[in-house]
């Protein structure tokens, strides 16, 4: 199994405060990996470092064996990292279809002006086809022409996933997909995620508070607290580990 995404000794400081301390993790092709830890552990910071939203002070980020530490966000995205957001980030005043079309097009930047003139700005046939496929995969068919303002939170999250699928990612970073959803919605989301992951075969790095979702979805997990990687291994073992209890219940750190 080849490594898709890796961080090697990544450290990050916010005005002297250490947010990440030499974090090293690996995600293999097609693997579902969890990243767990209490609030303020540095999970989202690590996501931002992987995607390039935040610069990394020490260490490297690798994608498919290539060092991408100094690339800007959009280059990393085109090379195969997708992501969703904890507080959903959709494009206001756009339809569901618009989201998918632009994500598809941003990764195939050739002859844009010529195409625009030929189609007068309407989506091209291959874009319609690709977006229809993704919508069907996520069970969003019928919502293609809805403005995003009319979507529910759960649908919005699915749309984020759909949007990132349009870029054909090798690895998707999911940032707390269950946040704001109730149990039933979370269960439905988990089911959908399992299905699409099986179908498309991308790797997933999942940040999540919902223990059930992490347990059911991931096979392997990393436990992060105060910027340190405390432990890693198969998800059940990490869940059962003393470090896990210490991190969440706040007793003295177990050596």
């Amino acid at each position: 199994m080849s490594t898709v995404l890796a961080t090697r000794g990544v450290s990050k400081y916010f005005s002297g405060i250490m947010a990440l301390d030499r974090v090293t993790l690996e995600v293999n092709a097609g693997e579902r990996v969890g990243l767990i830890g209490p609030n303020g552990a540095g999970k989202t910071t690590l996501f931002n470092c992987i995607l390039g939203v935040l610069p990394v002070e020490v260490g490297e980020v690798e994608l498919n064996g290539e060092d991408i530490t100094s690339l800007p966000v959009h280059h990393r995205a085109r090379k195969g990292i997708g992501r969703t957001f904890q507080q959903i980030e959709l494009f206001a005043d756009s339809t569901v279809r618009d989201h998918l079309v632009i994500a598809y097009r941003a990764n195939r930047p050739r002859w844009a002006v010529v195409h625009d003139l030929l189609t007068l700005g309407r989506p091209r046939p291959e874009e319609m086809e690709a977006s229809d496929d993704v919508l069907e995969l996520l069970g969003l068919q019928g919502l293609a022409d809805e403005p995003v303002e009319r979507l529910s939170l759960g649908q919005g999250r699915l749309l984020e996933v759909a949007r990132t699928l349009m870029t054909n990612p090798d690895v998707v970073l999911l940032d707390e997909p269950s946040s704001g959803l109730d149990r039933r919605e979370t269960a439905a989301l988990a089911e959908t995620l399992v299905e699409i992951q099986a179908e498309r075969g991308f790797a997933v790095l999942l940040v999540e508070h919902d223990i059930e979702l992490v347990s059911s979805f991931t096979t392997r997990s990393y436990l992060l607290d105060f910027g340190h990687l405390l432990t890693s291994g198969p998800t059940e073992e990490v869940m059962a580990s003393p470090e896990m209890r210490a991190a969440y219940l706040g007793t003295a750190v177990v050596a």
């Binding site: 959009h74 995205a77 494009f91 989201h99 079309v101 632009i102 700005g121 984020e160």
Partner: peptide, 20 residues
Amino acid sequence: TTGRKLRALGGSEIAARSVG
């Protein structure tokens, strides 16, 4: 295409960058 990109950037710059 450029208009669509600009609209996406206006809607959410971070999300737009993260799709490339």
